[in-house]
């Protein structure tokens, strides 16, 4: 058992985790953040993507004990019903969502990109989401959404 102290979606969070507990498990089962999905548990689908210090990581292959002292973000960080993030608005407008299972991870990968690159090319966008599988959309409308959100969003603020 380890006590971890980390920032989760902007809030300091202290939690007891098992030594062999993944971040995915801790987030879903202990912190009730069900937006982080399990798709394969071996780092080959991207559904469990979270941001650690603003970079995408697979929470299924991250031990929860490793995030102590770090900043962790899930899709809840981006927006809520009252104020959607421009990326979320764009995902709606451009039809980037079908079944919705890959969507939280996809949004986080996109958010991480836009933090570093305010004006990404389509190739930049495709590379940034190349670790997030989507079986429904063929990615086209996702890329379109990210491209169109890029101009509108000041992710740093």
């Amino acid at each position: 058992m380890k006590k971890i102290d980390f920032t989760l979606n902007g809030k300091q969070t202290i939690l007891d985790v098992e030594d062999n507990e993944t971040l995915l498990h801790a987030l879903r089962e202990k912190l009730d953040i069900k937006s982080v999905k399990e798709g394969c548990s071996i780092g080959e689908c991207g559904a469990c993507t979270v941001l650690i210090d603003n970079e995408p990581h697979y929470s299924c292959l991250t031990l929860a004990s490793k995030v102590s002292g770090h900043d962790v973000k899930t899709v809840e960080f981006l927006g809520d019903e009252n104020l959607l993030h421009p990326l979320q608005e764009a995902f709606i407008t451009y039809g980037a969502v079908q079944c919705g299972y890959c969507t939280p991870g996809m949004l986080l990968a996109a958010y991480s990109l836009l933090l570093k690159n305010e004006h990404p090319t389509d190739t930049d966008i495709k590379e940034a989401i190349s670790g997030n599988l989507c079986r429904c959309t063929g990615y086209i409308q996702i890329v379109e959404a990210i491209r169109n959100a890029a101009g509108l969003c000041k992710c740093n603020s």
Partner: peptide
Amino acid sequence: VGSPAIRNM
């Protein structure tokens, strides 16, 4: 190597 997340990890 792998994907962006794998390269970060």
